[in-house]
Amino acid sequence: MNPNELRASIPALEEVVYLNTGASAPLPRPVAEAVQSCVTEQGYRAPTEEGMYTYAFEVYDEARRAAAGLLGADESEVALTQSTTDGINRIACASEWEAGDVIVTTDVEHSAGELPWRRLADLHGVEVRIVETDRGRLDPDDVADVVDEDVRLVSLSATEWAYGCRLPVEAVTELAHDVGARVLVDAVQAVGARPVDVESWGADFVAAAGHKWLLGPWGAGFLYVREGAEDWLTPRQIGYRSVEDANTADYEYKPGAQRLEVATTNPAPYAGLVEAIERAQADGVDVRMERIAALTGYLKSRIPDEKLLSPPSFHSGLVTVEVDDPEGTVECLDEQGVKVRVIPSIDCVRVSVHAFNTRADLDRFVEGAGLTA
């Protein structure tokens, strides 16, 4: 990977110091061009040749293959979604729930991994058990204390969004499976930032999207459903992409994850997703991670220990910092052309460090925020 070439491919970096990839990434030119090319191909050329639907389905297929390769999954285990939240909701809404069922989650989940369970509690009387963390650090023993035979689902992030901690997915999955529960992982802060292997995780469902660390466009999400785990799901939505043959009197859902797809969606974001994944794999996701680790290490070395809320050791490119006035600090940095964000749930500033960033970018943040080591 050539960090300078990656940086040069992102026009927004000519204008600002961008340290907010954990929210949404600036697009590289080749990814934007892939989106634009798809629109013109489908709208201009495909109507005169194979047809617009045929072209779109080719893009969908390519996107599933790319996402499967990224995750270490089979193509049949991947459904295309619009976002991580969309993917999580598809699992929540396709499962049978009764009063007394239990869902276990953590206190540092994004609203994507928290609101669907609150809604199930309101609708069906499901109990939601929340495991407390120590500033994002999750002890599997604390999960074990609340996981019993009433638990049907455990939901957690691979990398939680508030402090940037990696959560022990493998250990939690083993605990859940021991009592017959399923596991859903929000992986949007992991894909593209570090290698992900869903087989080693053992989770039943993994939801993610391309618009953060993969440097992809909005509107292109993907959902992993482990082979056989689809039997746990009864989809509430149906369309021609969900079934084997929409033209028969008796419909039959597709056997794998694709039963959770419904109907016509814009193929252009998925064309951008394919380009983003291919670029990440060409760079080497592990190589990108090594650079992110080196840069976050440098940033943490410049932040006073009492101000650093994220772990001193490397977990992710998310670095959370305590400041006196988070909103004011973000506004002040914005005026200086430095983009970061507030995490309102813990009233702090979060910096997202990607492989395209530089030490000079991080110096701009430290100096603009008034931090000294």
Score class of each variant (00 low, 15 high):
residue 283 D to Q: 05
residue 92 A to T: 02
residue 159 T to V: 15
residue 322 E to C: 00
residue 297 G to W: 05
residue 295 L to N: 09
residue 263 A to V: 07
residue 290 E to C: 03
residue 316 S to V: 05
residue 211 H to A: 01
residue 195 P to D: 13
residue 311 P to H: 12
residue 129 R to E: 07
residue 266 N to I: 04
residue 5 E to F: 09
residue 360 A to M: 01
residue 67 A to S: 15
residue 169 V to L: 13
residue 172 V to W: 12
residue 82 Q to L: 15
residue 65 R to K: 15
residue 141 D to R: 15
residue 102 V to S: 00
residue 285 V to T: 10
residue 166 R to P: 12
residue 336 Q to T: 04
residue 43 G to H: 05
residue 314 F to M: 02
residue 370 G to R: 15
residue 186 D to N: 14
residue 241 R to F: 08
residue 141 D to H: 13
residue 327 E to N: 14
residue 372 T to R: 08
residue 134 D to Y: 15
residue 173 T to G: 12
residue 268 A to G: 01
residue 360 A to V: 05
residue 128 V to G: 01
residue 282 A to N: 02
residue 145 D to K: 11
residue 264 T to Q: 14
residue 364 R to M: 10
residue 27 L to E: 03
residue 180 G to R: 08
residue 238 I to A: 06
residue 279 R to L: 12
residue 5 E to V: 13
residue 353 V to L: 05
residue 233 L to N: 00
residue 122 D to P: 00
residue 258 Q to Y: 03
residue 127 E to P: 07
residue 355 A to Y: 02
residue 112 A to W: 11
residue 107 D to W: 03
residue 118 R to W: 11
residue 312 P to W: 10
residue 253 Y to M: 09
residue 196 V to H: 06
residue 228 G to R: 12
residue 301 S to H: 08
residue 151 V to L: 13
residue 203 A to S: 11
residue 204 D to E: 11
residue 109 E to I: 00
residue 334 D to W: 09
residue 276 A to T: 12
residue 227 E to T: 10
residue 359 R to D: 01
residue 310 S to P: 13
residue 249 A to M: 08
residue 178 D to Y: 04
residue 135 R to N: 07
residue 315 H to F: 00
residue 133 T to K: 02
residue 25 A to K: 05
residue 264 T to V: 15
residue 344 P to E: 12
residue 249 A to Q: 08
residue 58 E to N: 13
residue 209 A to E: 01
residue 354 H to E: 11
residue 354 H to A: 14
residue 174 E to T: 14
residue 120 L to G: 06
residue 203 A to C: 08
residue 101 D to R: 11
residue 305 D to V: 15
residue 22 G to D: 05
residue 301 S to M: 06
residue 126 V to N: 01
residue 297 G to Q: 08
residue 261 E to A: 10
residue 318 L to M: 13
residue 330 V to G: 04
residue 81 T to F: 11
residue 133 T to M: 00
residue 110 H to E: 04
residue 16 V to R: 11
residue 238 I to W: 01
residue 47 P to Q: 12
residue 311 P to M: 13
residue 79 A to F: 03
residue 39 V to M: 13
residue 267 P to L: 12
residue 153 L to E: 06
residue 92 A to R: 06
residue 135 R to Q: 06
residue 343 I to C: 02
residue 191 V to L: 01
residue 104 V to R: 00
residue 233 L to H: 00
residue 94 A to V: 02
residue 273 L to C: 02
residue 11 P to I: 15
residue 234 T to F: 07
residue 71 L to C: 08
residue 204 D to V: 07
residue 70 L to R: 01
residue 242 S to A: 01
residue 325 D to N: 15
residue 329 T to V: 06
residue 148 D to G: 12
residue 126 V to F: 01
residue 38 C to H: 06
residue 91 I to R: 00
residue 121 A to G: 06
residue 210 G to V: 07
residue 198 V to A: 11
residue 39 V to Q: 14
residue 19 L to D: 04
residue 235 P to C: 09
residue 347 D to I: 10
residue 129 R to H: 05
residue 306 E to G: 08
residue 315 H to I: 00
residue 204 D to I: 06
residue 179 V to F: 03
residue 304 P to G: 05
residue 358 T to Y: 04
residue 266 N to D: 15
residue 25 A to D: 06
residue 70 L to W: 02
residue 252 E to S: 15
residue 332 C to K: 14
residue 323 V to F: 11
residue 7 R to E: 04
residue 232 W to T: 03
residue 254 K to G: 10
residue 311 P to T: 13
residue 313 S to L: 09
residue 246 A to W: 15
